[in-house]
């Protein structure tokens, strides 16, 4: 699914929106319209996730000496836009943002 997001999209964030209604509603990337899965599932399940140790991701300013802290980057599988980031300890669940309706 590609194309410019229509104005009827309901944003979850500036980068991710819900398109369509009811059982047909899908998450989409607002940059390219790429599909990010059904509305009843977390959109991050359908993104590409890079989980990089913080000290490797951000250079010296982020090197705390700790090796168990990660920067998660969730990217659009279509256009590679970075949709969301999280800092996390290994194994901690992803944060989930949902839009009602």
């Amino acid at each position: 699914m590609t194309g410019t997001a229509p104005t009827t999209d309901r944003h979850i964030s500036p980068a991710v929106a819900l398109r369509g209604t009811g059982a047909a509603a899908r998450h989409v990337c607002t940059a390219c319209g790429g599909d990010l899965g059904p509305a009843d599932r977390p959109w991050k399940d359908h993104a590409r996730c890079r989980e990089i140790a913080l000290h490797l991701a951000g250079g010296p300013a982020y090197d705390t000496g700790e090796r168990e802290v990660f920067l998660r980057q969730f990217c659009c599988p279509g256009c590679a836009t970075l949709l969301d980031t999280e800092t996390a300890m290994a194994g901690d669940p992803w944060l989930t943002d949902r839009r009602a309706g």
Partner: peptide, 15 residues
């Protein structure tokens, strides 16, 4: 050990 100033919409946290 942890960045605490979270980013938004793909932005990174502050160091």
């Amino acid at each position: 050990r942890h960045p605490m100033s979270e980013g938004l919409a793909g932005g990174w946290p502050g160091a």
